[in-house]
Simulated assay, not measured.
Amino acid sequence: MRRRIVIAPDSFKGSATASEIAEAIAAGWHSVRADDDLVLRPMADGGEGTMAAIVAAVDDSRLMPITVDGPDDRPVHTHWALLPGGIGVVELANTSGLGLLDPLRPFHAHTRGFGQAIAAALEAGVSQLQLAIGGSSSSDGGVGALRALGARFVDAHGAETPDGNAGLATLAAVQLDGLRALPVGGVQVLTDVRSPLLGETGASYVFGAQKGASADDLPLLERNLGNLLSVIRQTSIISQTSTDAVALSTRAGAGAAGGTGFGLSLWGATSSSGADSVAQLIGLDEAIRDTDLVVTGEGRFDEQTGEGKVVDRVRATADAHGVPTALVAGLISAAAVGFAASTSLTALAGSGAAAYADPLTWARVAGAELAKRFEREFD
């Protein structure tokens, strides 16, 4: 009997995209049950690969090529996405991301290119913007992006401050009244990060190390972001939001992308769960209705998965429709409670190194194993 299976994994970060994993699982499943109807809905949470997952699932999406200034000023040839209805999607990782730097530059990397891509989408007349901000290489508080959108950040002599976190040290005045107008449908920031701008759980102390900062660097990164907040409180003209800057800095997600979440909130953008927003954009709920099984997955399934991650979001949607969910993960280090079945690439491959070296082969094996496991139940 033919069955309908939805395959909706996250990326296996550092080894395979969500689309690649979904296709590999599907190939494995079809090797056992060739007649089943497989619906691929690769997922994301606002991090690297979010745009690709959305474009793969939304018909009539278009990639719009653009060249921007990368996080170290070198040109980056990239794109933003235009969805039906005039929705623009811009991914920070493609313009100002960690993968664009070698070596990392924690004090000097900036988000100017991200702002340039946003500006290009606005010039194209988008009705709404969805901004995926995971994978940032910078701790500039979003200053580079805001500057590309018309804001001014100057020192005590009225000269524009240097880009990057280091430039925040000499910041003396901010003017936001020159910012471009928001599109009519607003701007949503997609992130799974809940950190505030400052403090032990903020941008610097939680994420500074992954951007190349040493333990000794972290207090200075924090001090410079603190100066940004202090100057905005004293001198900025916030024309598009009446919310107090300190309140914005303490909101969940303000510390995302080295404080870019905070910077975008000054423009008037609102934050949302990346997994929830992507699920809505790709029609996950509709796809899961009248489905026999949902397969989801991620690179590492652990205790943090239940904190708004993709796997948790997909399982909750399936549960709401009474559909069982199976889990495929690179490594499973926590109890897979609530899943009808689970399998890890590490277990199938015999080691984590083998699974990481060839994740698509083992994802195909996982798909085949799941198909065999469910065949008796289906038929």
Rank of each mutant, 00 (worst) to 15 (best):
A8Y: 09
A16W: 01
I21L: 03
A22H: 01
A26N: 05
A34F: 15
G47A: 02
G47Y: 07
M51W: 07
A52R: 11
V58A: 02
D73R: 13
T78K: 00
L82P: 09
G85N: 04
V89A: 09
V90D: 05
V90M: 08
S96A: 13
H110T: 10
A121Q: 04
S127C: 07
L129H: 10
S139A: 14
G150N: 05
A151M: 00
A156P: 11
G158T: 03
T161H: 08
L179P: 11
G186D: 10
G186P: 06
G186I: 00
N224T: 10
G226S: 14
N227E: 14
L229H: 10
I238N: 14
T241L: 07
T243E: 15
V246M: 12
V246L: 13
L248H: 03
G259L: 03
S265H: 08
W267M: 03
D276C: 03
S277Q: 15
D285L: 03
D290S: 12
T296Y: 05
E307C: 11
V310D: 11
V310S: 09
R315A: 13
R315G: 10
G330H: 05
A336I: 00
A336W: 06
L345D: 07
L345N: 00
T346S: 14
A353G: 12
A355W: 10
Y356I: 14
E369V: 09
L370W: 07
F374C: 02
D379N: 12
